[in-house]
């Protein structure tokens, strides 16, 4: 598996998508950003992503529902949960359900890239970290 990693990023805080998309895309990742759960679910019905990065706390459809949908419909897709400042317990619950890993805000883009890198390698992809090239 050597093509561009297909990443879905779901967070209802606009800042997260706006900051993370360029931070990931500049390392060759193809990123689609959604600011709501229903929009993300619609897209998931159309396309299988390698990695889904989703905030856990959102209106309408939350990150746990996104996780459950992915687990039920795409066994190979890795899900990374983003948690808010004080929702680490929820993230642990997500791990038990089958999330690949979680990352707590505030975080640095490189922190997320490190987690994505591990998820990519778990999928058989060579990874994205410069140091591993």
């Amino acid at each position: 598996m050597n093509g561009s990693l297909q990443i879905m990023l779901v967070d209802d805080e606009p800042i997260v998508g706006k900051r993370l998309k360029p931070a990931l895309a500049k390392y060759g990742l193809e990123v689609e950003v959604f600011e709501d759960g229903p929009g993300a679910l619609r897209r998931l019905r159309e396309k299988e992503f390698d990695i889904v990065v989703t905030d856990v706390r959102m209106e309408d459809v939350d990150g746990m529902q996104v996780l459950e949908y992915v687990l039920a419909n795409s066994k190979r897709t890795k899900v990374i949960i983003i948690t808010g400042y004080a929702t680490v317990e929820v993230a642990r619950e997500a791990l038990v359900k089958g999330a690949f890993d979680f990352i707590a805000k505030p975080f640095k883009p490189d922190d997320l890239r490190a987690v994505i890198d591990r998820a990519a390698k778990a999928l058989g992809h060579p990874g994205i970290r410069k140091s591993d090239d």
Binding site: G84, Y85, A86, K105, P106, K108
Partner: peptide
Amino acid sequence: DKQGGDYILDRQYTVS
């Protein structure tokens, strides 16, 4: 450190 700008912040951070 956060104000420096290399973090992804959310509103919950400032509230907390």
